[in-house]
Design a protein around this nucleic acid. Structure first.
Lengths: 204, 204
DNA sequence: CGCTAAACGGAGAGGCCACTCCACTTGAGC
DNA sequence: GCTCAAGTGGAGTGGCCTCTCCGTTTAGCG
């Protein structure tokens, strides 16, 4: 069934608003906040996306497309290690900026078949990236598929803790990981990131 | 003012319950759940700890003591690198098991002076550990104070994502970090951890 | 235009949370 | 063992969240 023009318009505004909010504030932004930012009522939001999860699938779809594009770009690099490295670096950088990106890569949606197919494709491309870098003798054999998840989750932990310095910290983390997985001499590290502590005021 | 015997008893039960719950389920367990597990009413909990933060300070105190003890133990190791390495490894391992530990190290309590003093002491001890390991030429000069926070936050991200495999993943992460900061030849890595994806069911 | 199905928004139901109030119970000093 | 301040538990309050109901508005077709 075709959506009416105004409905289609609102749908796009919702997706845009949700994307911005999730990128900035994390996955658990209230639905009401999304609706407000999109300039629609909550009912409209729920009519278009019957559950919170449905909205997430839609959002993650775009993120996943970005990841996939990154893999393809990396595969075109004639230098397998450089391809691998810049892919990891970019992924970490994007993850630090958009707090919904890692989730797109890391959550399995039971029932969203086309989403799952696309993710499988991204994983396959990444596997090829890994294979080539290993074959070139630049990526240690120790690198495991699961290490990508490890890196992503670790970056998540950093961005969750300190949003301001997240990009710098994520960059440094990526540098550390890459150095550890690289066979060659240690590459220079991105500068340390001044990570702030959480603050808690304890009243008397 | 002295607490009555029953009150003191309940206070201890509350601390015990809160510690167990936070270790297992993270920092945001409901106060009611803590009270239930301690076998007391919520009012009792709040009478003893007027705010959630007050309870946290109490809990973090113990955790911090553990960290401090670890630093002292590490300082006694005649091999500075081994001291540094095992300290990081232990910290990551403990952090993977107790989801409140990193928070103890990473949150600043305005107004809880003795807590802050103790944390400063832990940081100082760690700085000495770093100094020695660097002086021995085993820890790269690149290691920065903030990198400890980085490691802790990264471990947090991993344990938050997948509790079951957290210890294995934390171990591997620690291995990766240490390898990256070590001057010598690459040490073997802990085995990869099979990180599960998040699951989200999307209804039709 | 005018009609109507489609789309809309806001009020509200229901759940979970932190935190409080108060009528009842009990430890411990005499 | 009496007394009563100290201690207690559970019901209640108000806030925030997800998701629904329903009276009103509007796009778009003839």
């Amino acid at each position: 069934m075709e959506l009416r023009a105004d409905a289609r318009h609102n749908r796009e505004r919702i997706i845009k608003a949700a994307g911005e909010l999730i990128a900035a504030r994390g996955l658990d932004v209230p639905m009401a906040a999304i609706a407000r930012r999109a300039g629609v009522g909550v009912a409209t939001l729920y009519r278009r996306f019957p559950t919170r999860e449905a909205l997430m699938v839609e959002l993650f779809h775009d993120r996943l497309a970005v990841c996939l594009a990154g893999v393809d770009a990396a595969l075109e690099d004639p230098d397998p290690w450089r391809g691998f490295r810049t892919y990891i670096e970019n992924l970490c950088a994007m993850n630090a900026v958009d707090r919904g990106l890692a989730a797109a890569f890391l959550t399995e949606f039971r029932g969203a078949v086309d989403f799952e197919r696309e993710r499988a494709r991204a994983e396959q491309g990444f596997a090829e990236l890994v294979r080539r870098a290993k074959a070139a003798g630049q990526l240690r054999a120790e690198f495991d598929r699961s290490d990508l998840s490890l890196i992503l989750m670790a970056t998540d932990g950093i961005t969750a803790a300190s949003a301001e310095t997240a990009v710098a910290a994520a960059r440094r983390l990526a540098g550390l990981m890459l150095r550890s997985f690289h066979t060659g001499p240690a590459a220079p590290l991105p500068p340390p990131a001044p990570l702030a502590l959480y603050h808690l005021s304890v009243p008397d």
